[in-house]
Each structure stands twice: as structure tokens, then as C-alpha cells.
Design a protein around this nucleic acid. Sequence first.
DNA 1: AAGACACGCAACCGCAAACAA
DNA 2: ATTGTTTGCGGTTGCGTGTCT
Length: 257
Amino acid sequence: MVRKPSHGDDAGAGNGGAESNKERKGLWSPEEDERLFTQITYHGVSTWSSVAQLAGLRRSGKSCRLRWMNYLRPDLKKEPISKREEELIVSLQRSLGNRWSTIAARMPGRTDNEIKNYWNSRIRKRLNAAAKAEVAAGTEPPPPPPAAEKKVEEVEPINNGGTEVGPMPIPARFPVFECQLVDAGGGGGESTPSTTTSTQQNSGDDSEASVDESNMIHCLSFDDLDYPAADFLVDLPGAMDAWESELYPANSTSSLY
DNA sequence: AAGACACGCAACCGCAAACAA
DNA sequence: ATTGTTTGCGGTTGCGTGTCT
């Protein structure tokens, strides 16, 4: 479900005037996306506020960072979260608590925001269902899930064949992606719906038809980093069921899906 | 057909940690 | 050691869209 961009003004990068000096908020326009994408692709990031400035965006650095991390990054997966990934999320949430960025770091191509949103909508559904069941049964609501917030240190480290321990560090100062440059000049004016535009921009996605090598800026990709596969993080068989029934005894027979 | 409601997603806010001067 | 700035994170909100009544 994608919103239509409802920008207060048109992308409005860079023109003067008192009003236009005000920081923009709200949804990003395709033009803003393109400016940000191009800026980062060509020049990387020194500080986010400078990125905003150099790209001619009237956005906070914070906003630029968020947009890049959650939407423009070429390495993001666009497909919906799979069942396997969902299991992984549940498993990791169970051991890590709501440390979404840590969870996301173990799920290449997924963002903390995405995972958080996914979890929240799912857990809300569950809680509602459980609450209804409790009301119907006239019993007390179940206790919260075993909190893991304080147990972070006890979390089993990722063990990638015995050599790697813990999540692969992701460089704080990226520009670390392999991405196909979009035609920075063309199409800029004509407003394409933001999803379409951005999806095209994200065509670092290997499924895209043809990739012109001459248009590639090569940086490190997650593949280069030999990022640990998610597989070994999947919980022991039956553990999720056990957790489910622990969580919602009244509901223990009902399936997650 | 129209309104109400639920859902999902994007983005903002506030705080704390990390870093620089 | 202190202060200011930037970054990163988790929680929360706002809004478009789909579904239900």
C-alpha cells in the first residue's frame, strides 16, 4: 500500500525565498528521492546534514538518513517478508527484544523500520485476538513475552562456520553499495508515482533486465561482505510453537498464520 | 453507493550514545 | 573534563487504501 505523495509544495529543492527556506517535512517527492540518491551514489556521505545541503534538499540530515536507510538503499529487498523471514523475526525478537536495528542487521535487505512495522501490526493482531479470547473465556490476560531486553549479552552469537562471531559489522560511513546509476537528468521533471520511480532507482536489484557495467559505481555490497546467511539463525524446531503456547496458553492451538 | 473501520506503511519525535571541538 | 553536534534507535503518529457493513 503506497501513499500518493502529498507534498506541501513541489519538490522545491533549492529555490530561495523565506518560505522555501523552511525545512520540508512529510512524504518525499520523486525529485527529492532522485536528488538524494544521486548525491549519495556519486559522493557518498560525510555528514547527513551536508548531504541534505549538497543535494539541495530542504530536509534535515536526519530525514535524509531515514529516507536512504528505509527506502533508497539499493540493497533493500522489495519483496514482502517471507514466512521464513517471519520466523526469523519472531525468533530474534524473542531473544533480543525490540532491538529492531540489531534484528535488521541480521536480515540483509530488511530495515529496522520494516521489521518494526511488521512486528507491531502482527503483534497487535495477536494481542487483540488473545484479548478477545480472554474476554470470551473470562480469564486473565496472558503475561507479556519473556522480556529479553536485559539479556542481550546472553544472546547466542552468530556463528558463521566457526570463524565469524556476532553480526557482521556494517560500516558506519557507507557508500558501500553496488548500484546502477539512474539517469540523473532525464525524467526528473515528469512526476512518476513515487513508488515506481523509486523502485526503478533501486534497480541494484539483480533481477533487473540489463545492467550497463559502465553505469555501475562499484562499492562493497553485502555480498562482498559475505554477510552471514539468515539460515543458521532460525530457531530450533518447535521452539516457536512452545513460545506461542507459553505466550497465549488459551490460544495455543491456533496457528500464527 | 457511502460511510466506518482496520490495516500497513512512511515519516516524525524524543532520547541517548558517539564523536568532535 | 566539558560542551555542542551528529547519528542511530525505538516508539508513535498520520494518512492512504482496502474491506466490511
